[in-house]
């Protein structure tokens, strides 16, 4: 039972492999024939095109190889920045005076009740965001959800004895943070990080699907969007399925890893590599 709930070495290795693979993908793409159009339009999978071609003769497999680092890259970077921002605000709120932190929290309350999809939609139509704008947008609409959680965690950690002693002992705030507080809250941070990756991937795919991201940015969502016109023909098999499967698999991976990580933290089991 208990073993079942832990993160097993195999999984960690898988994740490491996965990450390595991602980093190598751009290199692979460089050696591929390129995401070129051809006269071979809507071709079914064959030896030449393993996953077939789309309506302007671009190779689906190449498309996927380009879209994967794009989508995941955006998700990871956006998640990282979101977390950094919310940590910053979380620490600020936990350490600032009552009035100031009350004000910030009130502001966050307001932000939280704005339906963010509507805002994202409005802004993206305006920007037709490429990679950078997309990350900014995701960070801007994601950071405030964590501040309350992080504030509670930091308050708890900052009032612990080891931190107080260190503080009284003349250590700098930075030292206290990095040596005592951050390691203690890291499980929470990792949990939030995974959640954010998932959210960002979902949003990126969603906006790509709506066709309002920069069209030069190939993402899983934009590939799915391209396939919609062919649902009534057989071509959906190779146009729709590959990007959809990869997207769902990635989201599923984030979710199960997150769940396992949570259990690992709760049961206090060790994470062995």
């Amino acid at each position: 039972m208990a073993e079942n709930r832990m993160i097993r070495p195999v999984q960690v290795k898988l994740i490491v492999l996965f990450t390595l693979g991602l980093c190598l993908l751009p290199a692979v793409v460089y050696f591929l024939p390129g995401y070129q159009t051809s006269l071979d339009t809507l071709a079914a999978p064959s030896l030449e095109h393993w996953l077939g071609t789309n309506d302007i003769g671009q190779d689906i497999l190449t498309g996927l190889l380009i879209a994967t680092p794009n989508t995941i890259g955006i998700a990871v970077i956006a998640a990282l920045l979101t977390l950094l921002l919310s940590i910053g605000v979380g620490i600020f709120v936990a350490t600032a005076g009552r009035k100031l932190s009350g004000l910030v929290l009130r502001f966050i309350d307001i932000l939280q009740s704005i339906p963010s999809i509507l805002l994202i939609l409005l802004v993206s139509v305006w920007l037709s965001p490429g990679m950078i704008a997309l990350v900014v947008l995701l960070v801007a609409t994601g950071w405030y959800d964590d501040v309350r959680v992080l504030r509670a965690v930091f308050l708890r950690e900052l009032t612990r004895e080891n931190v107080r002693y260190a503080s009284i002992g003349g250590e700098s705030g930075y030292y206290c943070m990095t040596v005592h507080v951050l390691p203690a809250v890291s499980p929470v941070l990792v949990g939030l990080f995974i959640q954010h990756i998932r959210r960002a991937a979902l949003m990126t795919a969603g906006l790509g699907f709506l066709g309002i991201t920069d069209t030069r940015l190939v993402t899983w969502g934009s590939m799915i969007q391209d396939s919609l016109n062919y649902l009534y023909t057989d071509a959906w098999l190779w146009l729709l399925l590959p990007p959809t499967l990869v997207l769902c698999l990635f989201l599923w991976g984030c979710l199960t890893f997150g769940q396992r990580f949570e259990r690992y933290v709760m049961t206090g089991a060790r994470l062995s590599v």
């Binding site: 159009t37 309506d55 302007i56 139509v125 037709s128 920069d214 069209t215 030069r216």
Partner: peptide
């Protein structure tokens, strides 16, 4: 789609083309 193909054709004679799909 037309834009992608035209840009590829122009690139094949050595012109660098940046396609922008605008609203």
């Amino acid at each position: 789609r037309e834009a992608v193909v035209v840009s590829e054709q122009l690139e094949s004679i050595g012109l660098s083309v940046d396609v922008r799909i605008l609203e």
